[in-house]
Simulated scan of single mutants.
Amino acid sequence: MVTLIAEDLLLLLLDDESGKLTGTSYPQPALGGALLIELALSGAVEVGDKTSVWRTAKVRAVPEQPPEDPILRAAYDVVAEKERSAQDLVDRLGKGVRDRLADQLVERGILERRDDKVLGLFPRTRWPAVDSTHEDGVRRALTGALVQGQDPDERTAAIVALLHALDKAHKVVDHDGISSKQVRARAKEISEGAWAAKAVRDAINAAVAAMTAAVAASTAATTAATS
Rank of each mutant, 00 (worst) to 15 (best):
H175L: 07
D88Y: 08
D49P: 15
Q104R: 07
T219G: 06
P27W: 08
R201K: 14
L9P: 06
G23L: 11
E7F: 06
Q65V: 02
A161T: 05
S227L: 11
I204L: 12
P152E: 00
G137N: 04
S227G: 14
L89C: 09
L41F: 10
T212Q: 11
V53G: 01
A196S: 07
V53A: 15
V59I: 11
K117W: 10
R184Q: 11
L93R: 11
K198N: 09
V79C: 12
D136P: 02
A210Y: 06
E64C: 00
K82N: 06
D16V: 14
A75H: 04
A187P: 15
P29R: 09
H164Q: 13
L105C: 00
A220K: 13
A203V: 07
L13I: 02
A34N: 03
L163S: 03
H134M: 04
D116C: 00
D153G: 02
K95Y: 12
R114Q: 07
R184A: 06
G23S: 15
Q87C: 01
E112H: 00
S218E: 14
T219D: 01
L13C: 06
T223W: 12
D136I: 07
N205K: 05
E154A: 09
V208Q: 08
L105H: 02
T22E: 12
I5Y: 02
K117N: 06
T3Y: 03
S85E: 15
G120V: 12
D167E: 12
T156M: 06
L4E: 04
Q148K: 10
K58A: 13
Q87E: 09
L101G: 01
G23W: 12
D136A: 03
G109D: 15
L93A: 06
D174M: 11
L39S: 05
Q28H: 01
A141L: 08
V183N: 03
T24W: 07
D99S: 15
R201E: 04
G33M: 15
L12E: 04
G94T: 06
I159Q: 11
V45Q: 02
A185T: 10
D202G: 03
E83N: 07
D151W: 01
E189G: 08
